[in-house]
Design a protein around this nucleic acid. Structure first.
Ligand SMILES: NC(=O)c1ccc[n+]([C@@H]2O[C@H](COP(=O)([O-])OP(=O)(O)OC[C@H]3O[C@@H](n4cnc5c(N)ncnc54)[C@H](O)[C@@H]3O)[C@@H](O)[C@H]2O)c1
Ligand SMILES: NC(=O)c1ccc[n+]([C@@H]2O[C@H](COP(=O)([O-])OP(=O)(O)OC[C@H]3O[C@@H](n4cnc5c(N)ncnc54)[C@H](O)[C@@H]3O)[C@@H](O)[C@H]2O)c1
Lengths: 237, 237
DNA sequence: ACGGAATCGAGAAGACTTTCTCGATAAGGA
DNA sequence: TCCTTATCGAGAAAGTCTTCTCGATTCCGT
């Protein structure tokens, strides 16, 4: 009765992270087991989708009960690589970079930023959130020597490609890019763009569509002359 | 020969934002027109996908030439709502919130943060990046009065739901949530989660898989006893 | 011990996205 | 002017992701 291994989509990986958060809250509440149905209810998803995502981790559940909570959390963490902490380097110690540096929770998510690189002479040599700042030209040898494979880019967009090149030269295999720039890297490097432009795009598009729909609906209710009197009190202006 | 309106996926919206960045660089370079093929080459995408995405904006191109660059940029901005600037409120003036406040480019993307709300008495009344900080309980009336429909949440996760509730009460219709929490909001509110947990999930998963594959490949090359001598110089340790 | 209810696991069906294909069209050179 | 080439636009095909469905399993109350 072994579970068959499944491919998981990017969306599925993100959902697993969401389940992880929900599960930890449930753990605090003392629940011993959890069902896919239960998770789905909290996150407003389809139970079968939650089950499929969880299947990807390889854990087996029991009918009628679900999954043992603590074990499921552990399997998700193992599956996502969060129990195998990876050291990381950060480039760009500006306002965003500093915020990332000060963010304690990354450790729990398998990432530990161990060094910072910035080309501002005023910042080099100083310490930010306990991490020393170096010149970017030291990055490749440092990363190679420390066997670091994860890099975070928080430089201006104009410096992002050069920074990525340095990181790749330093043996970095995964890039977390916060600059609004498209990076060209070799095939063996994974890139995740955390581009706020892209995110805002869908938000502003949907907001605009929604507001337009509301204006239209309001117009339909209030505009027709023949029903104006009847519907007047439905309009608040 | 009118273009037929198409539905666009979330991924498509993000790609449009990426095209927009590429196009602006081309504009600086002085190019007068651009083809879907050209954009696709830069971003390593399929030309037909770029064409489909651009079709969604409703602009018409010319065979053999493509699209007029400046016009295309304008159409994408209009389509995404970036030319119709929306005022926004921010909750949580911590390290992330301050970084967002200081980020000038949001204005170009249709968003203008006009007020900040934080429950830390030390921050209330002060000014951060030119924006005054208020107590959160002032949020609903302020948002209603100013007809603000966009809200940014940068509070701790524990305060995110309460903050979202305040925003919804204030007439906010779109939430940009940076806290790692699942928000429950009415159907008419759009939520975009900018959850770094979720993002890290796919990055750590892929990095781990890649490194595992590399270790396996290395082992295959170096482990077999019969070929050890021949392949010794292929191994660097 | 038995029957009902809840859940899992997995395959099938359906919905959505991406890629392919091809006719039409416009530019540029022979 | 005519031919070649690049590109668009749209429908078809292929692929991927999500939702549905159902038999099997387990728990719980009677
Ligand atoms: N601040 C935000 O809220 C925010 C939001 C979205 C995106 N971003 C993006 O994140 C990036 C950083 O933003 P920020 O607000 O922190 O900017 P910032 O100007 O505060 O910081 C940029 C830092 O990068 C350093 N730097 C410049 N060139 C460098 C190089 N070649 N190598 C290493 N370091 C270099 C600078 O010295 C500076 O310290 C930008 O690309 C920005 O577009 C920021
Ligand atoms: N710093 C980062 O790099 C980073 C990265 C990813 C996610 N986040 C998330 O972003 C959020 C903010 O992170 P941060 O690093 O800025 O934290 P922070 O502690 O620096 O700032 C939080 C701010 O929110 C304020 N606050 C608390 N309760 C509030 C309430 N009910 N209403 C309004 N304001 C309230 C606090 O006074 C504080 O100023 C957190 O949810 C965090 O998980 C931060």
């Amino acid at each position: 009765m072994a579970l068959q291994p499944r491919n998981i989509s990017d969306a599925g990986l993100r959902r697993l992270a969401a389940y992880h958060k929900v599960l930890q809250e449930m753990l605090l509440a003392g629940t011993p087991t959890v069902s896919a149905t239960g998770i789905a209810r909290v996150l407003a998803l389809e139970p079968s989708q939650v089950r499929k995502d969880i299947e990807a981790t390889g854990i087996a559940g029991k009918p009628k009960v679900g999954y043992p909570l603590a074990v499921l959390i552990r399997w998700i963490e193992d599956f996502l690589g969060w129990n195998n902490t990876k050291q990381a380097v950060l480039a760009g110690a500006g306002s965003l970079g500093s915020a990332l540096l000060g963010y304690q929770k990354f450790r729990q998510l398998g990432m530990d930023i161990v060094a910072v690189f910035d080309n501002d002479p005023l910042k080099v040599g100083r310490t930010i959130h306990g991490k020393q700042v170096f010149f970017p030209d030291k990055l490749p040898s440092f990363a190679l020597g420390a066997h670091i494979h994860l890099g975070v880019i928080a430089t201006p967009a104009s410096a992002a490609q050069a920074t990525a090149d340095l990181m790749v030269a330093g043996g970095i295999r995964a890039l977390w890019n916060f600059a609004p720039a498209h990076l060209r890297v070799p095939d063996f490097v994974v890139v995740r763009n955390e581009d706020l432009y892209d995110s805002l795009a869908s938000l502003t598009y949907k907001l605009e569509k929604r507001m337009a729909a509301e204006r239209k609906a309001a117009a339909e209710v209030c505009a027709p002359v023949e029903s104006a009197v009847v519907l007047l009190d439905a309009c608040t202006w």
